[in-house]
Every structure is written in C-alpha cells, then in structure tokens.
Amino acid sequence: MGYTQSMNDYSLFINSSEGSFTTLLVYVDDIILAGIDKEEIDRVKEALNKTFKIKDLGDLRYFLGFEVARSKKGIMMNQRKYALELLTDAGLLACKPAVTPMDNLVKLSSIGSVSFTDVHVYRRLIGRLMYLTNTRPDITFSVQQLSKFLDKPTIAHYNAAIIILKYIKGALSLGLFFSSNSSVHLKAFCDND
C-alpha cells in the first residue's frame, strides 16, 4: 500500500508523497489513521476493509482507554472512563477525595508493617494505575514508589495505593492538553534524587 515502517516507532507506518502525507498507527487490531489527504485516508480504509473487514469509528475519540477531545484551541487527552472503572472496581466511588497522591511525610519501606495477604489484588491495582500514568504525570512518582513493593506488599503500601485512588477521585478528568497555537519546541527538565 506504499507505507513504510518507521524505524523510531515500530507501530507507526508512514506514506509520504507530494501533497499527501498519511500515517497509520497500529496497535494489534486497532488503527489510527491521520493525514492531510482525505482521499488517501478513504483509499486505505477501503483497502483494509477488503482484506480484514474493518469497522470505521469515525473521528478519533476513544483509543485504548484514552479519550481524545478536539477543539480549535487544541487537543485534550484523558483517561476519565478508565479512572472511573478503576474507582468502581475498588469500591471507592463515594470516597472523600485527597489533595495529593502521596503523603510527603510518610516513608515507605518493605518492613515494619503487617504484610498484605491479597498480593494479586495489590499487583493488579498497581498495574492498572501504571497505565493511568500515561495521561497523569502527577501520579507517576507515587505509583513508581509503590511498584517497588510488588513482591511483598504490606498494609501500609495498600493504604498508600488507596490514597492515590482517593486523589484520582478528586480530579477524575484531569488530562494532558496540547495547545494548537503553541510552537513545537522540546523542553526537558532533568533532576535526580
């Protein structure tokens, strides 16, 4: 179909010719098509439909748990539904929200508290929180800290995970906003602890 795989992201396929630029982002059986040429996009859809029978979901709104909202001002990406499911499964929908995801005075360690017996529950919870960090850099640190204790979690660690959930409750639809009028300039901040 004239698409070449990008060497920098193996699930990205690019077709670029004069006056047309189309990209194809593939995750197993989910595909995002983006480009400036509507005809080319329709052509790809048709070609894919012939071989695989695809379902066209129209404009990008929901992809792998990410909700995408677009306006003239920019693109908003959040995982509100995913976070909501997380809270529902934990039974914390009605909990009191917390201000920060982690108490800055508590130091977590692998010893000193009663071990948490439901190891799988803890592991699943942290795993799901990890996926949430895609659009939530604010909980990255707390989730990373808790993920260090996946093998032998204690009650203290589980309680800390509950605080993260309580924090998420307070700001469910928090997400990343990409403004359309800002220039593309990479800025990195580097720190170490």
Binding site: A69, M76, N78, R80, K96, P97, A98, V99, T100, D103, R136, P137, D138, I163, K166, K169, G170, A171, L172, S173, L174, G175, L176, F177, F178
Partner: peptide, 20 residues
C-alpha cells in the same frame, strides 16, 4: 500540576478536599 499542562476539562465536582 497546572504548569505541566494538566487540565481538568470538567469543573471540579468536589469542592472540599480532605487533607491527608
């Protein structure tokens, strides 16, 4: 958080926060 580009598109539903 606000300077990271983290934005809440829905207005906060919870007015009062619990201090941890």
């Amino acid at each position: 958080c606000s300077r990271l580009g983290l934005i809440n598109i829905c207005s906060p539903t919870c007015g009062r926060f619990q201090r941890i």
